[in-house]
Simulated assay, not measured.
Amino acid sequence: MILELLQKELYWETKKLRRNQFLKFSGSTDTNVYFIEEGSVRIFIDDDSEERIIRFGYKGNIIVSIDSFLSDQPSEFYIQAIKSSIVKAASKQDFYKFINSSIENLKLWNSILEDLVLQQIEREKDLLYNSPKIRYERVLKRSPQLFQEIPNKYIANYLRMSPETLSRLKKS
């Protein structure tokens, strides 16, 4: 319902991404909101020694470089297509115009933010567990579709484990 309302009420620019193409680079400011119509993307940082994935998006998801969106400042995050993708982009200005056009839309925005905060808390909890098995089970329970949409090598990175460990956990 939320997505349907947003799709009807906002102007969305269509962007087609090739596999591995970047939607956003580290050090850039990006205040767009993206709706993934097809494909999948990853949001990550590069800490010089390795990439660290913090979030995925796939068909039907809204993604945003939230720190850049909220602050209008550059962000360290990259957003990259994992496979060929079609995303729709709406500007922050258009998005806020929509949000501020009614009390219902403002409540919708609050609901989106609350959901984002809860997702972030769950992600932080995931990272606190030493056991790869517990991290795997938590994410599988919370996001079973992730395992259908995203290749194992990216899921393993997200879960802070080797692809071999992930493979063993999936078999057990």
Rank of each mutant, 00 (worst) to 15 (best):
I2P: 03
E4I: 11
E4H: 12
L5N: 14
L6R: 08
Q7H: 13
K8I: 06
K8L: 10
L10W: 11
Y11M: 13
E13T: 14
L17N: 09
Q21R: 04
F22P: 00
K24N: 06
S26W: 00
T31Y: 10
V33W: 11
V33M: 14
Y34C: 13
F35R: 12
I36N: 06
I36S: 09
E37G: 12
E38S: 15
G39W: 10
G39M: 08
D46H: 14
D46A: 04
D48E: 13
E50Q: 14
R52G: 02
R52C: 04
I53C: 03
I53R: 01
R55L: 05
F56G: 10
G57K: 04
K59H: 07
G60W: 05
F69T: 13
F69L: 14
L70K: 12
D72R: 14
P74E: 04
S75V: 12
S75R: 11
Y78R: 12
I79F: 12
Q80I: 13
A81P: 09
K88L: 11
A89R: 05
A89L: 09
A90C: 09
Y96V: 04
K97F: 07
F98I: 01
I99Y: 07
S101P: 04
S102G: 05
I103K: 05
E104A: 11
I112S: 05
I112Y: 04
I112W: 04
D115M: 07
D115K: 14
L118E: 14
Q120D: 12
E122Q: 15
E124T: 15
K125V: 15
D126G: 08
D126S: 15
L128P: 10
Y129N: 09
N130C: 02
P132C: 01
K133H: 02
I134W: 05
Y136Q: 00
E137T: 09
V139A: 03
L140A: 13
L140D: 07
K141Y: 06
R142Q: 13
R142L: 08
S143F: 08
S143G: 00
P144W: 00
L146F: 00
E149D: 02
I150A: 01
I150L: 00
N152G: 01
K153R: 13
Y154T: 10
Y154W: 05
A156I: 01
M161I: 09
S162H: 10
S162L: 07
K171V: 09
